[in-house]
Computed example of a mutant assay.
Amino acid sequence: MQSPVYENEAGNGTQVSGLLSSYSIWLLTLLSRIGCGVSVCCLALVIAFHAIYRWHNSEHSLSIHIHLCVALLSLNLSFLANDSMTSLNNHGVCIFIAAATHYSLLCTITWFAIEGFHLYWLVIRVFNVYIKRYLLKLALVGWGLPAVAVISILSCGKYGKYNIYQLEGGAVTM
């Protein structure tokens, strides 16, 4: 039994254990689209609810949750756009969607870390600690730090089109 080869444009493939049939790829793609679609709908409802009904509430926790929801929404939207954008066979679009997906994933992880940091301040530091322009500083870290990572990877030229070779022959392009 052969393992599928994941290969990028440069042609250097890495062996990965496990076999993927065309049915498995189709099923995983379908499940991913359904899951991301449901997530997009729910996240849009959460953001709309908070924007309409709770905009006057200036609590820091709520603002951090909103930023996390926006990061998750952008992650799901970029993931959903991945299949249709790669079918265009345009190298620039491929690099853009890969960078957007990576950026939104890093933003999501960063906002989860920021939420943990904020919980530390709420639970461990019981006394009211005031930090000047707290949300602005958190937003700069939450949206700026991932941008630095993505820009550095873009400058190295690591984003591009990848082929996943199937067991039956042929390849799926990502």
Rank of each mutant, 00 (worst) to 15 (best):
G142A: 09
E168A: 09
L140H: 05
H102D: 09
R125I: 02
I109D: 00
V150T: 14
V5C: 09
L106H: 07
A99D: 03
L75E: 03
A48G: 11
N89L: 01
G11N: 13
R125S: 10
R133S: 14
L72D: 00
F96S: 08
G170C: 05
Y159L: 02
Y6E: 07
A149Q: 08
Y23A: 08
I97R: 03
C42A: 12
T108G: 14
L30P: 01
T14K: 12
A100G: 02
H60I: 14
L88V: 09
L31Q: 07
N128R: 13
V38P: 02
W143R: 00
N57G: 03
F117N: 00
L135V: 06
Y103N: 07
I25M: 14
G13D: 04
N89F: 02
L30M: 07
I109P: 05
E59N: 15
G116S: 04
G142E: 09
G157V: 10
N12K: 15
L62N: 06
L45H: 09
A99K: 03
A113S: 12
L73E: 08
N76W: 00
S3R: 03
L30R: 09
L75G: 01
F79A: 14
G11D: 00
G170N: 13
A113H: 06
R33V: 12
S3L: 04
Y134W: 10
L122G: 01
E115D: 01
H67N: 13
T86L: 04
L145Y: 03
V129M: 05
S63R: 15
L135D: 07
N57Y: 07
H91M: 06
T14A: 10
E7V: 14
S3W: 07
S17M: 11
L19H: 09
L27T: 07
F96E: 04
V150W: 15
L19Y: 03
L77R: 02
I34C: 06
G35M: 05
G142K: 04
H60C: 05
Q166G: 03
Y130H: 12
D83E: 12
N89G: 02
R33E: 08
